[in-house]
Design a protein around this nucleic acid. Structure first.
Ligand code: ZN
Ligand code: ZN
Ligand code: ZN
Ligand code: ZN
Lengths: 162, 162
DNA sequence: AGCCAATGGGTTATAGAGTAACATATCTGA
DNA sequence: TCAGATATGTTACTCTATAACCCATTGGCT
């Protein structure tokens, strides 16, 4: 049974953004950490769509939105915070960042990344995390983080080829 | 049943190097591509140990070995060739490169990376590749490459803590 | 041999990604 | 309101990677 992920379907993306920001506010409140204007703004920019954004792209967007220059450390600090809180993930193969649709629940960073449209689909497959853990355990390895980055074509883009 | 990977055991590493270079020569010969002196030298440097090396580290090593300056494009072109031929893998999370112990057989890039000693252990678990393929297929995604980078502590380093 | 096209490598300059160090501002609790 | 902690601004720099152009080497081909 094949199911099309949200990121690849037509959907009310304002809803995605709203949910993500609300979840972020709740989480930060409950954890006693500060979701400042800047951090919120960066998170909102990242959620503009389901495609990972680079730090320097975000810098430009920030500069445009705030009509003044923004230096790298500013955006990197905000990104570090969002990463620590699990509100975003880093896509290593792209040097880019994407919003997490389910922060709050601890999970690994598993993504399908379309090279055509740029969409990154976060997987939610505990069985996969488990199997990776098991394989690591069999070699005596203690896992701290997992990063699975699968590249290829999403359903929409693969279809467009045919 | 737990089995310690070669990279984490005492072993005759000259044997690793020798095998890797021999396999590279065979592969390139059979494919009709040229394993030039430079490419061979870079591959040999990468195989100095089981830890991923950055391009700029390799540049320094090349400069020292050849007693003359080596510019980035030189080493990146060699790395690109070795990547295309499947003789090395790129570790995205480290911006670094490591030799592949089984080039020739097509497989995905699955690694356990020790943050303490720097060793990267390549996994050979077709079942894992298969499961990832299946998960992707279920969402209508066409896989081209997989990159699994698991970070943590290898058996030696985890033991050293306790 | 002499030539040609293709491939590989040298060189310079620049783009892209990330951090160190220090100054300033803003919050928070006593 | 004051002090300490946290957050942001600013400058300068490091590390990673690529573009563009030129020259050298290779390996057929006549
Ligand atoms: Zn997530
Ligand atoms: Zn796509
Ligand atoms: Zn391999
Ligand atoms: Zn280790």
């Amino acid at each position: 049974m094949e199911h099309t992920p949200i990121a690849c379907s037509h959907h009310d993306h304002d809803h995605c953004i709203h949910d993500a920001l609300a979840a972020a506010r709740d989480l930060c409140l409950s954890r006693g950490v500060r979701l400042t204007d800047l951090r919120l703004q960066v998170l909102e920019l990242i959620w503009q769509n389901h495609k990972p954004l680079g730090a320097y792209t975000l810098m430009e967007m920030l500069a445009k939105a705030n009509t003044r220059r923004v230096a790298p450390p500013t955006v990197y600090r905000a990104l570090d915070f969002l990463l620590e809180q699990g509100l975003i993930h880093r896509i290593n193969v792209l040097n880019a960042f994407i919003g997490c649709p389910s922060p709050g629940t601890k999970h690994q960073s598993h993504f399908l990344i379309c090279r055509a449209c740029g969409v990154a689909i976060e997987l939610d497959e505990p069985a996969l995390s488990q199997q990776i853990l098991q394989v690591a355990k069999d070699t005596g390895f203690t896992v701290e983080t997992q990063a699975l980055e699968v590249s290829g074509l999403c359903g929409n883009c693969a279809g467009a080829d045919a």
